Simulated scan of single mutants.
Amino acid sequence: MTIEPQAKAQDLAVLQATVRRVDEENGQLRGRQARFESLLRAFSWTVDRWAGQMHRAGIEPDPVHPLVDEYNRTGV
């Protein structure tokens, strides 16, 4: 069975529209992820400053959550 050129063209148009939509969504997600990573780095830096201030004031902060410790060790 042979697919007619018009059916192929319609299938191609659907595929191209889908690829454009997925590319746009991926771009938006990448932007959000980059913003979130920047926020996480800024928050981590801020908390580290606060912990340093506590240490200098003789106040021992509670231990960090294991996920925070892992992030501090690996950056991931």
Rank of each mutant, 00 (worst) to 15 (best):
M1E: 13
M1K: 13
I3K: 09
E4W: 10
P5D: 09
P5T: 11
Q6N: 13
K8W: 03
K8N: 07
A9V: 14
A9K: 12
Q10P: 04
Q10W: 09
Q10S: 13
Q10A: 15
D11Q: 15
D11T: 12
A13C: 03
V14C: 03
V14R: 12
L15T: 14
Q16H: 06
Q16C: 06
Q16F: 07
A17R: 09
T18A: 12
T18P: 09
T18L: 10
R20V: 08
R20D: 15
R20Q: 13
V22K: 07
V22I: 08
D23C: 05
D23F: 07
E25G: 04
N26C: 05
G27R: 05
Q28D: 06
L29V: 06
R30S: 02
R30P: 03
G31E: 04
R32I: 12
A34D: 11
A34P: 05
E37F: 01
E37C: 03
E37P: 02
S38W: 04
L39S: 10
R41L: 15
F43V: 15
F43T: 15
S44P: 04
S44D: 13
S44Y: 00
S44T: 14
T46S: 10
D48G: 12
R49M: 11
G52A: 04
G52K: 05
R56E: 14
R56H: 10
A57Y: 00
G58Q: 00
G58A: 01
G58W: 00
I59E: 00
I59Q: 01
I59P: 02
P61S: 01
P61G: 06
D62P: 07
D62I: 05
P63T: 05
V64L: 15
H65K: 02
H65W: 07
H65M: 10
P66L: 06
V68A: 10
T74G: 04
G75C: 06
